[in-house]
Structure formats: structure tokens, C-alpha cells
Design a protein around this nucleic acid. Structure first.
Lengths: 198, 198
DNA sequence: TTGCATAAACCGACCGGTCGGTCATATTGT
DNA sequence: ACAATATGACCGACCGGTCGGTTTATGCAA
């Protein structure tokens, strides 16, 4: 029987493997075996393992962007509350997960950014999109008078993402969410500080 | 001829390779070839590639700790000035380097923390030592009345390290030091803020 | 409605090369 | 003599990737 979703199936299976084990630690053989697909089929859908990796990274971001957008544009909450909810979601996700895989974006940045132009370019555009997403909500919080910032919202957003990636990396080593909780304290205590009207 | 420094030589050669190419992307063959040492010799000195990686990581930290300590305990500067000098050093190092390898500690955290218990444990102790180093200088800055902080110095130090690792990761993708400069602005603008006596 | 051409997808044996790791033997310093 | 080190040929497993051949869905002409 001819499958229609083989390509998708390979990507989602690969996403799980590449995310938890890393790119180089997962062979094409592992991936096709886990997906129950013969070797040749893999290469009818993807030029190379590298291109497959870039594709998988794209899928990861698609999913993450969808969830992030859902929280950050939830108009039942104030902009600042949305940012706090986003953080809270990250922390509980980390606390509940038992695989300690970290963030695929950070992992790929460390493992592939130097070697693979393809993956690096995709990472750059993902970082840019992520920054825009966060910057928008930060700007909304400023406009709503909830916070005041001294630097452009894009700068603050980019910092937040970087600091978040660093914290995720640390929590991967520690195998607990302490680093994320610590980051939240600093961010909402010293950077996105609520304005109390006098 | 019997060499006395073979082990050291392998470690420093491996340091260069593992740092720039990553752990999985560097074969044992690459390492021994670059070091000009036969295969067997590698395995008289190291049990496995994994153990070698942990050893190399240790060497990396030795060197980094030495340089960091030198700056952070330079009594010709005030504690806050030392922290700023430390940051400045990182930024110029990144701007001048052309390999975009990032920080080996972060890279290993992303690539090996899940798979290798050995490396993960070493990473944890490196993070702890690094935190202590920074926390000491932060405490000194507080004692000198240069800054005031609301959280324990260890917490601030750990945050600084995580945010720094995240910024390094980003600058690896961007291939420029923007993320580090941005981090400096935020850190010394909102977290380690100089007290101006009234 | 059938017959048929085409392209896409499926399939797994197979490729050369590299992987991490071993071993028997030789050489050295103490 | 003995232990530590040096040496490179060698190991089987696995690597990413290729190949020729088969099956299947689809468009179209008769």
C-alpha cells in the first residue's frame, strides 16, 4: 500500500529522535527503523541527512510557534500576564518532562551551527521570528502601561530568548528546572518590572 | 623514542578539535592524526572517547578558570570594574575569533549532557565552580558599596553564566558578538546597577 | 469504460568508507 | 625483571548514501 503521509511520518519520528538524542547521535538507520520505513524511501523524500535535519528543525519551530502564539495573543490576559504565563508554561513543561532533552533550537545551535550552513540559516530565521513574537507582546505591555523599558522591545525580547536558551542548557545538566525559575525571578524582578501607579 | 608528554599533547590537540568541530563530529582518528600519534597510544592513555572528552573538558575549564580568576581577582580594579573587564574580554575575544566555535561548556551541555553521565557530572561541577568564582566578585562589589542586589550573589552569578551561555550560542548562529553586547547592556543597566551616592 | 503512459513513491540489498575499540608485540625507563 | 608506554595492523559494526527495479495513483486518449 502506498503511504501518503510517509514524509510527515519520517519528520515527526525524526523530531522525537533528533530532539532527545541529538543530530549526530541519531543515525539515518535509527530514524527509518523507528518510523518503520525502508532506507531508500528516506532518500526519495530528503536529499541528505543534513537537509532532513533542517526540515525537522522547521517542524519543531512550527509547533513551538503555534503554541507560543496561542499564549502570547490570549486576550483574556494582560500582556504582562501573558509573558508570565509563557514562562510558567516553560517551567512546568521542564519540571514534568523526564527526558531532559532541552530545546532543539539551542541543541542544534551548539551542534550544527558551525558545520551546516543550511541549519544555521534556518536557526537564524527562527531566532528572528521568535524575537518578533516576544517583542510584540512586550510592546503591548509597554503600551498598556504595565511596564516601562529603557531599550527597544526587540532588544529585550532577544535578550530574553538568549537567557532562556542558556537556562534550558543549564537545566539539562542539572536535570531540574531551577535555572528557569531563577531566570524568571530576575526577568520579572529587574527587567520587566511592573509599574505600580503612585 | 618514549614520549613523556603524549597524554598532554593528545588532550590539547583534542581540545582544539572537539571545541571547533564538536564531539561527535571529531573522530578518534582525526584526533590522533592531528596529534601525530598512533591509535593504540590513544587507548593506553584513555579508556574511551567519552572519557577523553571529559578529560578535554576538564582541561578547557582549567585554562578558562585560570584566566577568569586572573581578571576577577585583579586588585588594581574595583570589583565592579573587574566584572565589566571580564565581559569586555569575552566580547573582544568573540569579535576577534573567526571560528565561531562558541563555548565548549555550552556545546558539551547540548551535545553530551543527555547521553554521557561522565560528561554531565563534570559539567555540573564546572558550572558550580564558575558560579562560585563570579559570586565572590559580586559579593565584593556589594561589600564595596558599588552595587546592591536583591537576590543572593550565587543566584545572580548563576543567572549571569546561564545568560552568557545563551548569548554565546546565539552569537554562534549570528557569527557576530551582538548578543554579547546586548547582554552587557542589560546586565550592567538593570541587574548590576552602579549605586550613585546621593 | 477501458487502456495506457507517466511520474512519484516504495523498497531493501548494497556501496565504500569510517566508526570506536582491541591486541600482540616491541621498546623504554627504573 | 618488570611495569608503563608505543605501535599500527586489525576488528566487526555502523555510517550516510546509491541503485535498479517494483508498485501505485493519476491524467488522458480512444
Amino acid at each position: 500500500m502506498r503511504q501518503t503521509g510517509t514524509r510527515d511520518h519520517l519528520i515527526s519520528t525524526g523530531l522525537r529522535l533528533l530532539h532527545t538524542q541529538g543530530f549526530h547521535a541519531s543515525g539515518v538507520q535509527d530514524i527509518i527503523q523507528a518510523a518503520g520505513v525502508p532506507k531508500g524511501t528516506f532518500y526519495t523524500h530528503f536529499e541528505s541527512k543534513e537537509q532532513f535535519g533542517a526540515e525537522v528543525l522547521g517542524r519543531f519551530w512550527e509547533q513551538r510557534a503555534a503554541r507560543t502564539t496561542a499564549i502570547l495573543s490570549d486576550e483574556t490576559m494582560s500582556p504582562l500576564a501573558r509573558l508570565k504565563a509563557w514562562f510558567a508554561g516553560k517551567i512546568t513543561a521542564k519540571a514534568e518532562s523526564r527526558n531532559h532533552a532541552g530545546c532543539m533550537i539551542g541543541n542544534f545551535s551548539a551542534e550544527l551551527a558551525v558545520d551546516s550552513r543550511l541549519v544555521r540559516d534556518r536557526l537564524a530565521s527562527i531566532f528572528a521570528a521568535w524575537t518578533t513574537l516576544l517583542a510584540t507582546t512586550i510592546q503591548e505591555a509597554v503600551d498598556a502601561g504595565e511596564i516601562s523599558i529603557t531599550l527597544p522591545p526587540e532588544t529585550v525580547a532577544a535578550f530574553l530568548i538568549d537567557a532562556f536558551e542558556g537556562a534550558i542548557l543549564r537545566s539539562k545538566v542539572d536535570r531540574d528546572p531551577t535555572a528557569l525559575i531563577r531566570l524568571r525571578e530576575i526577568v520579572f524582578g529587574s527587567i520587566l518590572v511592573e509599574r505600580h501607579p503612585a
